[in-house]
Design a protein around this nucleic acid. Structure first.
Lengths: 114, 114
DNA sequence: TTGATATTTTCCGATATGGGAATATAATTG
DNA sequence: CAATTATATTCCCATATCGGAAAATATCAA
């Protein structure tokens, strides 16, 4: 048996750096395939295929607008991932202490940019 | 080229369901390879290889104890993942505000399932 | 050293994957 | 309908990956 799960779940969908780029580019707005391809410098078929994967796991939504398809993030689908990481949070939390309190405030949140 | 980055980063390491199982099993305690293999019903070489991947991205630490190797989670390494999901957090919070609108209809979201 | 136990590594086969090129489909316009 | 634009899908190839079996290490004990 090869790769056990394939990318049929959010974890796998997000494992691909290109797909994370697409999600980041998409967040908060609706974009068509061509704009994504241009902005991220990917081939159009490649973008289409990535979007398909993202759509299959519910990370993006698609809506037709004339000849174009407009894609947007369905952030709700990221929650399972977030919650999975939360499981481990208390184990790193002692190193953060106060930061956690500020973390709830959007303006002075720490930046990691990784 | 297949998966662009290979599993040289946390996202890829965690994309594998087996590795997530290992991390969950490991959280908060130290376990040797054999115990992991037995508890999760995996082949022992398979576990070793997964642990290697996890170790290479810093998700686990290894310590020798006699003939055994004891593995433990380094939760700190999960933070990048956590923080990445945080980027999207306000968008699902935003959606939560509206969830009551859809509350009556369990599923009116488009499904593509192709 | 020899033997037993624990783990890692190597080799292998089956399969999944991403990207590009080409092709197909869809929607709009004339 | 034909032409154009925007996306999706198919085909092909190179490569990564998982798992199992077998072999290689490592550690301890007698």
């Amino acid at each position: 048996m090869p790769r056990a799960t394939t990318n049929a779940d959010v974890f796998n969908a997000v494992a691909e750096a290109r797909r994370r780029e697409i999600l980041s580019f998409l967040v908060g707005s609706e974009r068509c395939v061509g704009d994504i391809a241009e902005a991220l410098e990917m081939g159009q078929p490649s973008v289409s295929k990535h979007l398909k994967v993202l759509r299959e796991v519910g990370l993006v939504r698609a809506r037709r607008d004339g000849r174009r398809m407009l894609y947007s993030v369905d952030a709700e689908a990221i929650r399972p991932l977030h919650e999975w990481t939360e499981t481990f949070r208390r184990y790193w939390r002692h190193q953060l202490d106060r930061i956690k309190d500020r973390a709830e405030r959007p303006d002075d949140r720490e930046r990691t940019d990784s």
